[in-house]
């Protein structure tokens, strides 16, 4: 049992870091621009497709990453300057609808350009899984503990990226400007921050992290128009779970979300085995139970685990 829990924990963390990085971008855009970016996953997907195309043409993984990130930057600048700038300040709902429109456009464009056939993306790191046997005292049934090398590498990469992001947002001037803007738009303008520029920066960082997450997950999901739909959904949940007011909130939320998810499957499997229920697959209910946990958490702490108190308007 201990090994099974430990195994779920490991898988959960590896899965959760992807939710976290997705949630990071969503929460960054939400806290500065103020829109739930429904096109987040699909913007990332477009970037991954560009990366795949470059990889297909040049066989160079580094160039592929570079191209993907550049395309994300261009996309982000386009979204901000061409679309969002026009409706910013008018209403949040208008911005929301624009992201919904982009969601559909990106999906359609991906199908038109690259087709619906899933495209294979090679493993980036190529580590083999490690199998570990824990000592007998902890492991009575002698089940091996599997540590997938690729996922570990992905986890490490994302943590390194997160560290860079933290350094950027805590210590660099543009990073601090973005933070100031997200706390108080007018205040930021008063002290001379160019809020137009910080918004563009948020979009770039948000979508670039989505592309990055997409590239890392691509070997598993293959490259297809719906590859990031689920991840975006989990990203939203992670961002809300962690709360918007801190940089690490979304990542922590994502990691916890991943772990809960795996533990819930484990628990449900054991429960169904105990009750001899075979008609229901635990995976079918997994998401509901995870979401119920989150609803309960939010009822207890309405601003997310790491969130500050919501300042209501009078």
């Amino acid at each position: 049992m201990f090994v099974k829990v430990l195994q779920s924990l490991i898988f959960g963390l590896f899965q959760g870091c992807l939710y976290g990085i997705m949630g990071f971008g969503l929460s960054l855009i939400f806290s500065t621009v103020g829109v739930m970016n429904f096109a987040h996953g699909n913007s990332g997907m477009i970037g991954v497709f560009v990366g795949w195309t470059v990889l297909f043409l040049t066989k160079n993984i580094f160039l592929a990453f570079l191209a993907a990130i550049i395309s994300a930057t261009i996309l982000a600048i386009f979204i901000d300057k061409a679309l969002m700038k026009r409706v910013k300040g008018l209403s949040h709902s208008a911005m929301l609808i624009i992201t919904l429109g982009l969601l559909l456009i990106f999906e359609g464009l991906a199908v038109i350009i690259w087709g619906t056939q899933p495209l294979i993306f090679p493993e980036i790191f190529g580590f083999s899984p490690k199998i570990v046997f824990l000592p007998q005292s902890l492991n009575k049934s002698n089940i091996p503990l599997i540590i997938p090398g690729n996922d570990l590498a992905v986890f490490g990469t994302i943590m390194a990226l997160l560290l860079l992001l933290i350094v950027f947002f805590k210590y660099s001037k543009p990073g601090l400007a973005v933070q100031a803007r997200s706390e108080d738009e007018i205040g930021a303008r008063v002290i001379g921050i160019n809020t137009q520029a910080t918004d563009t920066l948020s979009w770039i960082f948000g979508i670039a992290t989505a592309v990055f997450a997409g590239l890392l997950i691509a070997p598993k999901t293959t490259v297809n128009p719906n590859m990031l739909t689920n991840l975006q959904f989990y990203g939203f949940t992670a961002a809300v779970f962690g709360g918007f007011s801190s940089i690490v909130g979304a990542m922590a939320g994502g990691l916890i979300l991943g772990v809960i998810e795996k533990l819930v499957i484990l628990g449900l499997d054991e429960l169904f085995l105990l009750l001899h229920i075979t008609s229901i697959n635990a995976v079918d209910l997994q998401l509901s139970i995870v979401l119920l946990c989150i609803i309960v958490t939010l009822i207890v702490k309405p601003t997310g685990l790491f969130g500050n108190k919501y300042k209501g308007k009078v």
Binding site: T237, D284, L285, L287, L291, L292, I294, I295, L298, P302
Partner: peptide, 29 residues
Amino acid sequence: GFPSLRMKGFYLAITTMAFGVVIEQLISV
């Protein structure tokens, strides 16, 4: 509606989204 007594904005939106997913999954099983 009860969670809405404590939550606002984005958090409430996500809660309602979660509710939608839960209903969809429950009916499916």
